[in-house]
């Protein structure tokens, strides 16, 4: 009898475990979102939906989860008798699942908001992630590039339709996970020399933006993004496939 591959078991564990962490994170974001939006009812501004709030904060969240993936999860699983290779596959699956779950949950909350706004007939309407199109100021300062690059990803255009938008949102979150994972893997393996990978991170962030802002057709940009993710996964694999697990 062929048993289910072990990496699927780990992937499901990784997914549920990270989802457990996500609940408090999401609750806080939701609370901040509500507090932040409360004044719009008196000020006469459009409401910003939860997708917009989540879009900005979930990037950072996935980035941190990525770092933890390399520094905490990998050693934990290897110490429990699982291979680095199986963990690698399962982290890709588990975190993709988490990215999709985060996006779906955000979309559901945003959907409710849109419904409520329609029901109460709020005169100023509601804004979603399409407003980000103009939000990203291409400052040439390096720090500004990193910060805006991390906060505002250029890949969302609701003109593509909602399904594709949510898919791109998920891919975007997964990209942040992989970036965090790559940095975590470099630090875990090489300590301070791992700093070098930060330069690579900034470089890749720019490449991603350039691909997306180059005016290429959507599918060409998407292919570019997937190649970028592939390169980062390959780097992670090189860094972690024979890595020494610290006691």
């Amino acid at each position: 009898m062929k048993t289910k591959p072990i990496y699927l078991k780990i992937a499901s564990d990784v997914f549920w475990f990270q989802l457990k962490w996500t609940i408090p994170f999401f609750s806080i974001i939701l609370l901040v979102h509500l507090i932040q939006n409360a004044p719009v009812f008196t000020k006469g501004q459009p409401l910003q939906d939860f997708l917009l709030t989540s879009y900005i904060s979930s990037n950072i969240y996935m980035f941190i989860i990525g770092i933890i993936s390399a520094a905490v999860f990998l050693p934990f699983y290897v110490k429990n008798g699982l291979t680095r290779k199986d963990y690698f596959k399962s982290a890709i699956l588990g975190s993709s699942g988490l990215a999709v779950a985060l996006v779906l949950a955000s979309a559901m909350i945003a959907g409710i908001e849109h419904l409520v706004i329609q029901m109460i007939d709020f005169p100023y309407g509601i804004e979603s992630i399409n407003v980000l199109q103009d939000a990203k100021d291409t400052d040439n300062n390096v720090i500004a590039i990193i910060v805006t690059g991390m906060l505002f990803s250029p890949i969302i255009d609701p003109g593509h339709g909602w399904v594709l938008t949510l898919f791109l949102f998920s891919v975007n979150l997964f990209t942040y996970f992989v970036m965090g994972w790559m940095i975590g893997a470099a630090f875990y393996r090489m300590k301070l020399i791992g700093f070098a990978v930060l330069a690579l991170f900034i470089f890749l962030l720019r490449i991603r933006d350039i691909i997306w802002e180059s005016g290429l057709p959507l599918y060409a940009s998407m292919a570019g993004l997937f190649v970028l993710i592939g390169i980062m996964l390959w780097i992670i694999k090189l860094l972690s496939r024979r890595v020494t697990i610290k006691l």
Binding site: G81, L82, T83, R84, K85, L247
Partner: peptide
């Protein structure tokens, strides 16, 4: 044993941590 799933799951290493 290294990166061999069958062997690794059959080895348990308990240490002071």
């Amino acid at each position: 044993p290294f990166e061999n799933p069958e062997v690794m799951q059959d080895v348990v290493f308990i240490y002071e941590k």
